[in-house]
């Protein structure tokens, strides 16, 4: 009876606080002893979440085959990273979610009717050649997904540039009637005959799985901006320059405003500006550098689209600007507190 009472006591009263002893020695480390707690994998997860609306839209438009392409791409990236790191006895870093993100981005950059070996080879190329051979996360000089996309374009040009018509819901087979993309028509200034702007904006059009719906991409982009995962400089500068140039110089005598809107809403521009150009590893760290980075991307995109051999220039422009990040960082060093600003004449001396 007494035993029972004793056992019941703690429950009825306030639970006694646990008592702990001081260890004989404590851990010593240099300050700071606090961390904000947001880690790389949190950031990567946020970008993945931001891409979900566009992903779901792509699957809605193109059916389950689009999901399979993305799935193969993600699996290829993750498995490549895992195997590479195990074989080379390096720390396995797949838990940081960056390989998943690369795979997702690559998948979204592919047409839904590519043969399945295309995302698999692309994922391997992105992770092994572009990322791991340069030293893994944080060390690559180009965006892995974009570099892989360009690699695939060069290897399988036909498969990579034939887009099925919208609402062609495919399953396992890839037989589909391909249609002209808005971009090809834009190049020659043909506009209204082929598509209307609202369809372009909402994503009722053909293209790569993740590129088609501007609305869904903007929702994701806004999420990243609100969560402060990305800063506004790169997307605003990038889209601003493209908007300005297409407004001033529409091709083939097309109307300025519709031409500008169509240029912004077609191809991989929105996806590139919000999700690819803002990739931390391959973009500058200062705000000035980011503005110029966006500006450069915009200029190159405009020139490639207008004068280049390919209808689309987003991937190339971002990759070219990727290689200049170091110089942009050095050119836009912030003014250090307490260091006298050099006068222009002094700088060269």
């Amino acid at each position: 009876m007494e035993d029972l009472k004793l056992q019941e006591q703690p429950a009825s009263q306030e639970a006694p606080a646990p008592v702990a002893e001081m260890p004989p020695l404590l851990t010593v480390s240099p300050s700071p002893h606090a961390r904000q707690g947001i880690t790389t994998s949190h950031l990567m997860r946020d970008v993945i979440i931001a891409l979900l609306p566009a992903t779901i839209w792509g699957i809605y438009i193109y059916g389950l085959r689009a999901a399979l392409v993305i799935l193969f791409s993600v699996l290829s990236c993750v498995v490549s990273e895992l195997l590479f790191q195990i074989l080379l006895k390096r720390t396995v870093t797949i838990s940081d979610c960056s390989a998943i993100l690369t795979g997702l981005l690559l998948g979204l950059n592919l047409p839904p009717n590519v043969p399945f070996y295309v995302p698999i080879v692309g994922g391997m190329f992105a992770i092994i050649v572009v990322k791991q051979l340069f030293g893994g996360i944080g060390k690559n000089i180009m965006n892995p997904a974009l570099a892989a996309r360009v690699f695939l374009m060069l290897c399988w040009t036909n498969q990579m540039t034939g887009f099925p018509k919208e609402y062609t819901r495919l399953w396992w087979s890839a037989d589909a009637v391909t249609s002209a993309t808005p971009l090809a028509s834009l190049k020659v200034g043909a506009l209204a005959e082929n598509f209307n702007l609202l369809d372009l904006f909402l994503g009722r059009t053909g293209g790569c799985i993740g590129e088609i719906s501007v609305l869904m991409l903007l929702i994701g982009g806004a999420y990243l901006l609100v969560r402060r995962v990305i800063s506004w400089q790169i997307p605003v500068a990038y889209l601003g320059v493209v908007a300005l140039l297409t407004f001033l110089f529409p091709a083939g005598g097309a109307d300025r405003l519709p031409y500008m809107v169509a240029s912004l809403c077609s191809g991989g521009l929105i996806l590139g500006a919000f999700f690819m150009a803002t990739d931390y590893v391959t973009s500058p760290v200062t705000n000035g550098g980011r503005l110029l980075f966006g500006l450069g991307c915009g200029l190159l995109t405009f020139f490639i689209r207008r004068f280049g051999g390919y209808p689309e220039g987003v991937s190339f422009s971002i990759l070219i600007m990727n290689t200049l990040v170091w110089y942009l960082d050095m050119a836009f060093k912030p003014h250090v507190y307490g260091i006298q600003r050099k006068k222009k004449g002094e700088k060269k001396a």
């Binding site: 606080a17 646990p18 002893e21 001081m22 404590l26 851990t27 010593v28 300050s31 002893h33």
Partner: peptide, 24 residues
């Protein structure tokens, strides 16, 4: 009031610039 759990670190000063102590 003593300790409620075993500490790993004891910092003299703030968590940002303080010094971790080894000696209780």
């Amino acid at each position: 009031g003593g300790l409620t759990q075993t500490p790993k670190k004891m910092v003299s000063g703030g968590p940002m610039m303080g010094f971790a102590q080894w000696d209780p």
